[in-house]
Structure formats: C-alpha cells, structure tokens
Design a protein around this nucleic acid. Structure first.
Lengths: 211, 211
DNA sequence: ACTTGACTTGGACAATCGACCAGGACGACC
DNA sequence: GGTCGTCCTGGTCGATTGTCCAAGTCAAGT
C-alpha cells in the first residue's frame, strides 16, 4: 500500500511523523504505533529504520531543536538604530515565532524534562540548551553590529539570562495563554537588556579578533 | 502486615509516597503499584482511597504546590535596609531553597507539562502559576514594607516577570547543574528589580488605593 | 526469466499498566 | 460473644506498550 523508499528518506519521514504526533498530542502519545500510523506505514517499518524507540525520539529531539534554532535565528530584522529599537524588533520577531508554534514549544519542555529523567535521552536537554545559549550569543552579536554597542557584563552570562527569561515567559504563556502579557513582559526585559549596552569603540565592526 | 489507618490518614500517606516516588524517579514512575510499594501497602489500597490514579496525581500536585509555596514564603529574611540589599537577601534565601530540592523542582515542571497535555490534570498547571504569582506579589509586598518603596510598573506585571525569571534559571540549572551561574544570574535580575523601586510616599504602607 | 537484496507487512510475544473484585482481618458496639 | 462496618489483601482481567520475526513484495541486475 505504501510507496517504497530508501531507508534514509523513510527515516526522515518517520521523524517528521513523530514530530507531528508529539507536537499535537504530547510526547507520551508518540508511541511506535502512532508514529507508524501517522506516517502511513506499518508497524515493522519503524524498527527497520531505527534500532529503538529511543533512537527515534533522540532523532526527533535533534530535529525539533534544529527547527527551533532556525526559526529563532532565521527571521531577525536588521536595522541600524539605537539599541532599544533593535532589541525591541528582535523580541517582537522572536515572540511572534514562538506564539505560532505552541505544540512544538510545549514538546520542547516535555523533551527537556524527559531527558532529565531517562538516561536514554541523557544528552537531549543539554544539547537543547547549548544550542539556545549559542543562539542567544549570536543575537547579542547582531545587536552589537546593528547598534554599535558592547556589553557591560560577560556575554555568556547575558546569553544565559536571555534564554532563562524567554523560557520563563514562554512557559507561563503555555499555561495561561496570555500572549500580550508575555510580549510586554519580554519587552520590559528588553529595555533592561538595553541598559547593559555600552557604546562600542569606533571601528569595532570589522574587528573579528577574539574567540 | 500493615497497620490499619482511617482512610483520611491513609490518603495523606499515599500522597507523600507518590511525592517521594515521583520526585525520585519521575512522574511516569509514579504508577499505582510503585506508590503502593513505597507506602508499604498492597495494591488495592490505592483504589480504596482514591477513585482514580488521576485523583491521586491531582492530590499530589496540590501537595507539592503547597509545599513549594510554603518553602518560598517561609524563610524570608526581614531586615530594613535599602531595596538592593533586601532583594539580594530574598533571592539568596529563595535560591538556597530551590537548590536543595532538585527532585521536587523537576517534578513541578513535569506536572506543568503533563497538565497541559492531559485533560484530567487540567487545573493543575494554572493553579501552580496562580499560587506562584500570588507568592511573588507577597514578596513584593515584603520589599515594600522593608525598604519603604513602591513600584514603577504594575505589581501583576512585576510578579509575572519574577516567576518567569526564577522558572527560567531553575530550568537551566536542572539541565546543566551550574548553581553559581543561576545564583549570580538571579542576583543580576534582582539589581534590575531594584531599579523598578521608587521611594514610597510617606505613610504609603496603609495606602491600598490605586489599581 | 530468475535471482538477489532492499524494503514492507502484520501478527505474535512478554511485560506493564489501571482497574476491579471476592474475600479475609480487625476493631467497635450492642 | 456475636454482629457489623471499616479497612486490607492479592489475584485477575483487558488494554496498551516495545520488540521481534517469518513471510511477502518489488525493482534492479544478470
């Protein structure tokens, strides 16, 4: 009944099916049977493409982490203005992206907690956060170049704070659905972030020096 | 083999057993059998005391929420100083409490995500957050009275921000275990919070006027 | 046409889960 | 001491799960 596909493509199809099921109905609903049904293949195919269910879940976690980062870093507005405006634009774009992906966002938190409990998913959570911290640092880089500023506190500390605040507001929004409160709360944090910006030494743009 | 107890006391014992199992091994490990074994009773007792497994989980969620709030609001240092010092003391006490309860903290996030997926636990997450927001407002009240200040932004907004930031840093700490980064990050937020404090009009304590 | 290898099918299995039940044990009260 | 209601026991049931497997199907190469 189903088209025949090389195993590599079938794997990607199953990963997307798992992502669809888990985003819609939760990580516990992503059983082998549900994923197979979502993909329109029969039960055995999953274990033909993946050794374990855990291997499938790890692949799914890797996929959603990559998708989240791409979404966060993809649509960044680049205008050269004062730090407040640059940060405000970034936060608006970021929050718009989050608001439109409630299911995957909730799934990300489910994956984080599951990773912290089950040793088979050991690396999932830390990889999620390493990626998010790196993405936050790239956002800081963008603000630096756009607004010609530096930072009065270490970048790593700032990046960790950004991720924590976005996570916290997102989680609260998932619970009570008040997206306006989340947006304005994030903008308030953005104004705080702007106070951390200090004018950059001239010609700092092309200085691609430090690690 | 087991002492006979009135059903009310047995319920509380089972709730604590469920709390112990779920804090140690995760919410998925809190099966009816595991809870019964932890409490040292046999399988049927659980369904004698609770209609469902879901009723047990709801009771457990209510218990851990109450415990978290009691822990947060219980050990608040009360010294009359400048806002920065008062906030710094509160954050240190708060973080010390969180740091010493990793299992229950992780369980709280598991309950939040589970509540958002399973309709049987519908009310759990929102009750968690309503409690936390109210607790944050009480903390703001404490700062007001201790340091004689008011706030330049609405209290509800501020409370939501506090909960979001604490949640975000806690979640990151659960993942990478860097408690020093969490503590210093929270202190950085505390200094931001202090900038939101404005000197209170004299005798403003009893003024419960504006919205 | 036939073989080979890749891919698919759907059933079977043991394990685990929540739920349920018939009966035993215990204490209180008449 | 007998009766009754409360509480406890441990087995059983059906449903769901991950895993495995023997057989089937199809396209490509000889």
């Amino acid at each position: 009944m189903m088209n025949r596909l090389p195993v590599a493509e079938r794997r990607e199809q199953l990963i997307e099916a798992a992502l669809a099921v888990a985003s819609r109905d939760g990580i516990d609903a992503a059983t082998v049977r549900a994923v197979a049904a979502e993909a329109g293949v029969s039960l055995g195919v999953v274990h033909y493409c993946f050794q374990d269910k855990d291997e499938l879940l790890r692949a799914m976690a890797h996929a959603i982490t990559a998708a989240n980062l791409e979404r966060s870093l993809g649509e960044l507005p680049v205008e050269k203005e004062d730090p407040e405006s640059v940060i405000e634009g970034i936060i608006d774009a970021l929050w718009t992206g989050i608001k439109e992906s409630r299911g995957p966002q909730l799934l990300s938190y489910e994956l984080t907690t599951s990773s912290l409990r089950h040793s088979e998913l050991n690396q999932v959570a830390i990889e999620q956060y390493r990626g998010q911290w790196a993405a936050a640092e790239q956002v800081l880089n963008l603000v630096e170049r756009s607004a010609h500023v530096g930072w009065s506190v270490p970048r790593g500390t700032l990046a960790r704070t950004i991720v924590a605040v976005v996570d916290g507001f997102s989680l609260a929004w998932l619970v009570d659905g008040d997206s306006e409160a989340a947006r304005s709360g994030l903008q308030g944090f953005g104004r705080f972030l702007a106070t951390m910006a200090v004018p950059a030494p001239v010609d700092a743009d092309a200085a691609a020096t430090p690690a």
